[in-house]
């Protein structure tokens, strides 16, 4: 079961990174989060999460 869950998380992150941007065009919203453009905040957050997922998956 934990194996299935971690695989699910992986697929979810993949989905977010590759497809959310094209579908919802959030990268063109020109929104700033605390003065930083949203796409940068979004991408680096997903990126960091990916590392966490990989770290936990490798345990």
């Amino acid at each position: 079961m934990p194996m299935m869950r971690s695989k699910g998380i992986v697929v979810f992150v993949l989905f977010l990174t590759l497809f959310v941007w094209p579908v919802f065009e959030i990268f063109d919203t020109e929104v700033f989060v605390l003065g930083v453009p949203l796409p940068i905040v979004y991408l680096f957050t997903v990126w960091g999460l990916s590392a966490v997922v990989a770290y936990r998956g490798g345990k």
């Binding site: 695989k7 993949l14 990174t17 991408l43 590392a51 990989a54």
Partner: peptide, 20 residues
């Protein structure tokens, strides 16, 4: 712009598939 980052998010994506 930030599209250049795809050169590095690609490897991140494939590293998520380490097990499979």
């Amino acid at each position: 712009g930030i599209e250049y980052l795809a050169v590095y998010t690609g490897p991140v994506l494939i590293l998520l598939l380490t097990e499979v």
